[in-house]
Design a protein around this nucleic acid. Structure first.
Length: 435
RNA sequence: GGCGCUAUCGUCUAGCCUGAUCUAGGACGCUGCCCUCUCAAGGCAGAAACACGGGUUUAAAUCCCGUUAGCGCUACCA
């Protein structure tokens, strides 16, 4: 039975590297029909908090990477660690060290060439005579990471330890603990690390390192996981878009890369856009509506739906809807005069056109049919003997305050007759000396 | 410093194990074109890499050695 675990330490928010480690553990477990477990390593009493722990567990839930068994906390297993440590002292493999009146326990480090076969790196050898005797119980009575980790993995019957490369050099130490305890060590797979865009270790300096950030930006869990899977893992084919289920099916430790990878925000955003696009209209609308609860209330269900669909191919994150469609949510308070001027020089008869258009459009009962508005606009252009775009571009600017938007007529039908004519009249009333 | 890991386009990667099929494939980003009411989306095209130096071999991105660089460990942090 394959059993793996993700063992975060609640000394901070779940970060990108942690998510990737959790993901690969999950993928391997599910691919092999095994179990994925979660263990909270809260042996650092100074830095561990319940708040971080809850946040991490909640984040894993959001990602869909749930533990198959009850979550284990190291702080609840102190008895066990002390018991094993005491046995080691009794057998003479560990000893007390008193410093500043505080007592800690150290395990004698066996001196030998320690080799193990890493599932990612292959054969790795260390000379353990270079290591100090390992502190196993700190003077505060808590076990050190190394000691607790080994005992838990053994007690939880973990078959494969899949963790970051930063633990590669720790592995021989762990192996020596297993050896003096007379326990069988699990198999190891050390994952390459995720670095910042500049190739340096991921840190706050890089800005977005916590998963929370990506949640708030409106990333889909599946898309984020998909991107992370692509870092340090490749397939023979050219497929890059994967759902979690597809990743589970295709995952293999053999395809894990040996070298560190840099996090590329652009590609991550692109993939999220791809996932958004692949969502069914219903799912997309549900996600957006949940994210934009407040804005939703400003529109009828039918209009809201129409609005969202207009931007489905244009948004990369749920949050970016605001960048694309901000003008739908709030009235325009001002226009960019530079663009205004450019438009004016391109279309000198702009005011005349718009006034004519308003005159024609106000006769329409409503703006519900974009084909109707389009026909009206093209007729108007024909009336002046100019191309339709000479009407469309100024109209777009007056309506959206931007030179970029989805199809103008669809946009107008979403905004509605009253709002559109209101904006146009406001625009025409602006800067009479320029117009 | 010591020990360990790693090294293909700017970035993520395929190829490396089992040398010849690699004038090195895909993706993001970038540039151009098409579509077109603008922008996106989509389609097409393009620029862009085997870190360096030795060696083995008829033949090396692929195997070996060294150099360099990056990263990790070297805590009573995990």
């Amino acid at each position: 039975m394959i059993r793996v675990r993700f063992a975060p330490s609640p000394t901070g928010y779940l970060h990108i590297g942690g998510v990737r480690t959790a993901l690969f553990n999950y993928l391997y477990a599910k691919n092999q029909g095994g179990a994925f477990l979660v263990r909270i390593e809260d042996t650092d009493r100074e830095r561990s908090t319940l708040e971080f722990e809850n946040e991490i567990i909640e984040a894993l839930q959001w990602l869909g990477l749930q533990s198959d068994e009850a979550i284990i906390r190291q702080s609840e297993r102190l008895e066990r660690y002390r018991e094993v440590a005491a046995a080691l002292v009794t057998q003479g493999a560990a000893y007390e060290e008193i410093k500043d009146g505080k007592t800690a326990l150290r395990m004698k480090m066996p001196h030998k060439k320690a080799s193990f076969f890493d599932l990612v790196h292959g054969e790795v050898t260390f000379d353990t005579s270079l290591f100090d005797d390992l502190v196993i119980i700190k003077s505060d009575g808590f076990p050190t990471y190394h000691f607790a980790c080994v005992i838990d993995d053994h007690d939880m019957q973990v078959s494969h330890v899949i963790r970051g490369d930063d633990h590669l050099s720790n592995t021989p130490r762990h192996l020596m603990i297993y050896e003096t305890l007379g326990w069988k060590a699990p198999k190891y797979a050390h994952l390459p690390l995720i670095l910042g865009h500049d190739g340096s270790p991921l840190s706050k300096r890089h800005g977005a390192v916590s998963l929370t950030h990506y949640r708030k930006e409106g990333y889909l869990p599946g898309a984020f996981l998909n991107y992370l899977a692509l870092l340090g893992w490749g397939t023979d084919g050219n497929q890059e878009f994967y759902t979690l289920e597809q990743l589970v099916k295709k995952f293999s430790l053999k395809k894990i890369t040996k070298s560190n990878a840099r996090f590329d925000g652009d590609k991550c955003a692109w993939l999220n856009g791809q996932h958004l696009k692949k969502l069914s209209d219903e799912d997309y609308i549900r996600q957006m509506s949940e994210f934009w609860k407040d804005e939703k209330g400003k529109f009828s269900d039918v209009t809201w739906r129409k609005l969202l669909l207009l931007y489905k191919d244009r948004v990369k994150t749920l949050k970016s809807l605001a960048d694309e469609a901000g003008y739908c949510f709030a009235p325009l308070d001002q226009y960019d005069m530079a663009i205004h001027q450019t438009l004016l020089s391109n279309y000198p008869r702009l005011k005349e056109f718009l006034a004519y258009w308003v005159e024609k459009a106000q006769v329409l009962e409503n703006f519900e049919h974009d084909t109707q508005i389009e026909q009206l606009t093209r007729d108007a252009a024909g009336h002046f003997g100019v191309q339709a775009k000479e009407f469309i571009h100024p109209l777009r600017f007056a309506i959206a305050g931007k030179t970029v938007s989805p199809g103008l007529f669809e946009l107008m039908s979403v905004l509605g007759k009253t709002e559109c004519l209101g904006r146009l009249r406001g625009f025409l009333a602006l800067n009479p000396q320029i117009l």
